[in-house]
């Protein structure tokens, strides 16, 4: 394989991406991440402290509680996306394949629309819909004469995280739909014709034809879900603010990072501890990505 490509051509392919990526992303990140191994003395000087910041994250009574809480919440957030968003997304993509292009385009576009909205709008409208004062309650009362008030789903510690996870699923379901659909329509047209001609059942076709062919894409969607969710920040930030209430029940690693690094209200930022949070996030995500790459590697060799 190496004989076919000249070194010059390889540099041409990889060069531009490497340049921009290294200069405007990697260098700034490394410059900041390395702060996680230091502490700030007197505004300017950085004092090397090894793993002290990580020790704080894991063991300090105040920090560790917040850190583990955020990690646990993030896990739940991810599981909701993985096991609700993705299966439904795959199902929708499958349904779309059987339709005419015009119909498929219409449905696809409709499902993608929430993904194109800014978080501000998504946050505002769902807070309104779910509000016991203005939202569903008023409809239930007007239409069904139900006098019971719906619980404040976004306001109760027990339901806030689940509710916001579902709002996020609503917003981003277009992504698995689009990716799986793109993969499905790349399948050889002859095979798809054969399924139609032989009148293969929906589920049989799914398990024996569609699934094996889009399995790599499903793996891709899964790893993207994992990476995006453990890096998630904007929706919680917009709806609940950096304090991610009620009582930190919606706190994710992303909001914890923001609060720790940049500070909040009267709390000043701690760039060293914040960098440590970011490093922890990086490592957590790295584990998942490594598993994915290993899995993909095995498939290539197969």
């Amino acid at each position: 394989m190496m004989k076919n490509v000249k070194k010059r051509e390889l540099i041409l392919f990889l060069g531009p991406a490497l340049f921009f990526y290294c200069v405007f992303f990697v260098y700034p990140m490394i410059a900041t991440i390395k702060l996680s191994f230091y502490e700030t003395i007197n505004n300017d000087t950085q004092n090397f402290v090894g793993l002290a910041n990580f020790n704080t994250l894991i063991n300090d009574p105040f920090f560790s509680e917040v850190f583990w809480n955020a990690l646990w919440n993030n896990l739940i957030f991810f599981l909701f996306h993985m096991f609700i968003q993705n299966p439904i997304g795959i199902l929708i993509a499958l349904l779309l394949v059987n339709l005419s292009f015009k119909a498929a385009t219409f449905y696809r576009t409709a499902v993608m629309l929430p993904t194109m909205l800014s978080f501000v709008i998504v946050g505002f409208i769902w807070q309104l819909i779910l509000s016991p004062t203005w939202g569903i309650t008023s409809i239930l009362y007007d239409v069904f004469s139900i006098k019971e008030n719906t619980p404040a789903l976004l306001g109760e510690e027990s339901t806030a995280l689940i509710t916001i996870s579902l709002v996020s699923v609503w917003q981003f379901i277009g992504i698995p739909v689009l990716l799986i659909y793109a993969a499905l329509i790349s399948i050889n047209k002859d095979i798809l014709e054969a399924i139609k001609l032989e009148k293969v059942g929906f589920f049989k076709a799914f398990f024996h034809v569609h699934l094996p062919m889009v399995w790599p894409t499903i793996a891709l969607v899964s790893i993207l879900t994992y990476v995006n969710n453990f890096n998630a920040f904007d929706l919680i930030y917009t709806v609940k603010g950096p304090l991610a209430g009620p009582n930190f029940s919606t706190d994710l690693l992303g909001t914890l990072f923001y609060r720790t690094f940049f500070g909040f209200q009267l709390q000043s930022g701690n760039i060293n501890l914040g960098a440590a949070v970011a490093t922890a996030m990086f490592l957590i995500i790295l584990i998942g990505v490594s598993i994915y790459l290993f899995f993909v590697q095995r498939r290539i060799l197969r």
Binding site: Q127, S131, P132, T133, N149, A152, G155
Partner: peptide
């Protein structure tokens, strides 16, 4: 009121 746990600042003002 009933929904105060999910009531935002803007919503309090609107109320």
């Amino acid at each position: 009121g009933n929904g105060y746990k999910a009531q935002t600042y803007t919503q309090s003002q609107a109320l």
